[in-house]
């Protein structure tokens, strides 16, 4: 196997006195799709938010594409907290799609998509528009380019948010419960778009989800979180059908009973 694109080393996170991540080691390979599952409050969202630098790390290190994310080496080779420049450089490998989309309400759909390439990366505006329209076509929303987010359905908003994250060409893309805020009938269109991206294969994905069927279909690997630890981690066939730990068994049972699979 090649070098991992993301590597968590003994990562611990506290919120005040409350431990939410308990010394986690974890690797994601380039192109790998990993689904994070587990009860709410188990630490999976915090795990992902640390990678996006939305929460500060308490202890341990995270490496992204061979660089430390939260740290850099000083002249003696010791680790010190990363400077803003270093953080931004390493962070440019990561992208995120949020549960509540967080589109920019004052910009049209197309403006939402070209904003970061133009402002952050300095891409020529014409080129950004060309790329942006291509991406919109891919998520099936080219005809909405000049609409404002407020005029879109939830599913359409989330597809725009996915396009907005993708045009930045991240090596790792985080999906934080991308369909939890959607009406049931709109979930399918978003999952389809995510599946399409997954099939292209280049981008590593970290999927926080409650959609077990979707996780099974898309993920190469599923990590089960409980009480700040990764209790089990393996291919979907094993995690979903041959759970070893009692906690995972319990979780799956409860899950299957509340959410009967349509298939």
């Amino acid at each position: 196997m090649s070098e991992p694109i993301v590597k968590y080393n003994n990562v611990t996170k506290y919120f005040d006195d409350l431990m939410v991540l308990d010394g986690i080691d974890f690797e994601i390979q380039p192109g790998e799709k990993v689904a994070l599952v587990g009860p709410s409050g188990s630490g999976k969202t915090t795990f992902a938010r640390l990678l996006m630098t939305l929460e500060e790390i308490t202890d341990g290190t995270i490496e992204v594409a061979g660089d430390y994310l939260w740290h850099e080496k000083d002249e003696n080779g010791d680790l010190k907290p990363a400077s803003t420049d270093h953080l931004r450089k390493v962070r440019s490998n990561i992208g995120m799609v949020f549960q509540h989309f967080h589109l920019f309400p004052h910009m049209t759909v197309l403006e939402n998509i070209i904003e970061a390439p133009v402002t952050v990366k300095g891409v020529d505006k014409k080129e950004a528009i060309k790329d942006g329209k291509e991406m919109l076509d891919k998520v099936g929303l080219l005809d909405k380019a000049d609409n404002y987010p407020a005029q879109l359905s939830g599913g359409q908003k989330q597809r725009v948010a996915i396009a907005r994250a993708l045009v930045m060409k991240p090596k790792v893309l985080i999906f934080d419960e991308p369909t939890s805020a959607l009406d049931p009938e709109l979930i399918g269109e978003v999952l389809d778009v995510i599946k399409d991206i997954a099939e292209e294969g280049e981008t590593s994905m970290l999927l926080i989800t409650h959609e077990m069927d979707f996780a099974r279909e898309v993920a190469d690997r599923i990590a089960f979180f409980d009480a700040g630890k990764i209790v089990e981690d393996g291919p979907p066939s094993e995690i979903l059908y041959h759970p070893k730990s009692p906690r995972l068994k319990e979780f799956l049972e409860r899950f299957m009973s509340t959410q009967a699979s349509p298939e």
Binding site: M52, T53, L54, T84, R88, R91, S92, I94, G95, M96, F98, H100, H102, L103, F104, E115, A116, T119, V120, R164, A165, M168
Partner: peptide, 21 residues
Amino acid sequence: KGQIEATIALNFTRVQRMRRI
């Protein structure tokens, strides 16, 4: 506050975030 998170995820600088978003 989600707007701030979105700009972090898209790697804006603080100044860019303020000015543009």
